[in-house]
Design a protein around this nucleic acid. Structure first.
Lengths: 148, 148
DNA sequence: ATGGGTGCAAAGCGTTTGCAACCGG
DNA sequence: CCGGTTGCAAACGCTTTGCACCCAT
């Protein structure tokens, strides 16, 4: 929160109630939020907030280094709090649940693979897709709800 | 090619010049093609082909198990020939070049990671982003052209 | 009072779809 | 001839933008 207000000041931007509400709702989130979710939740606080402002604020939060946008194969991007440590994700293809994990071997060896092919590595994306514990209990026929 | 005609017959679908042209152009591709590229190339063969037909044909090719759609963080999806062996990708963030690689450790251990979090693994996605050899020679300022 | 911020609606962009004409079997 | 296929344009879903109005500073 403070990081955002600092950024706003330092960039000569302005504070607004909308930004505060949206940021607050975003910080309240433990895991990952979609724009939709965030929009719905902010509307409960102030029903006049437009979706464009949610998009604009999320872009601002990314610029501050507070939010990261993740594009999983779920149809809609998810925002999470930026953390110091890189991590990857497990995504439930049934309910959309997202779990973070750290895999040391990847972090250690990704550079070798890149170098082997003449690439100078910048970053990577590792996503495991599967069915989470809770969804495994559902009948198979209800376990699908992927992007397409 | 034969696999497609077989599939068309067996599904009671029909053969058409458009499908043949598009499929042929797709098979001609060594690496990865975007819809745009494919559309441009098929138009050189028959300028009346519409983009909707390209989309429809690529969906058909996916249904036959001949094409795979890859959604990299490049802004536009790429289609590649379906292969027996799973592999992952290195993507040049400057020119968009795509290189395939196989990383045994990942294939072997991904299940452990998933199980550890209670997930039943279905598939994964591993992408390394960096700058390819050719692009490393360009001035740094020209090395970016990522999605956003 | 300035000029950035907001809401709304319109515009973008890539992809899909409805429909009438078309054509393969 | 029948029903799948095509091209075109319209519809879509998500995100961005233009603009007049609003409100921090």
């Amino acid at each position: 929160m403070k990081k955002m207000t600092d950024y706003i000041d330092q960039q000569g931007l302005r504070h607004s109630t909308q930004r505060e509400i949206i940021a607050q709702e975003f910080f309240k989130t433990k895991g990952h939020v979609s724009v939709e979710d965030l929009y719905d939740r902010t509307r409960k606080v102030n029903s006049k907030i437009g979706i464009a402002t949610v998009y604009r604020t999320m872009n601002l939060l990314q610029d501050c280094g507070l939010a990261v946008r993740r594009d999983f194969d779920t149809g809609q991007p998810a925002f999470e709090l930026e953390t110091e440590q890189h991590h990857d994700h497990l995504i439930c293809t049934s309910c959309g649940k997202i779990v973070e994990f750290f895999w040391e071997e990847i972090e250690k060896n990704q550079n070798h693979i890149a170098k082997k092919h003449g690439f100078e590595l910048q970053h990577h994306k590792m996503e495991l897709y599967g069915v989470c514990k809770a969804c495994q209990k559902k009948p198979k026929s209800l376990q699908t709800r992927q992007k397409s």
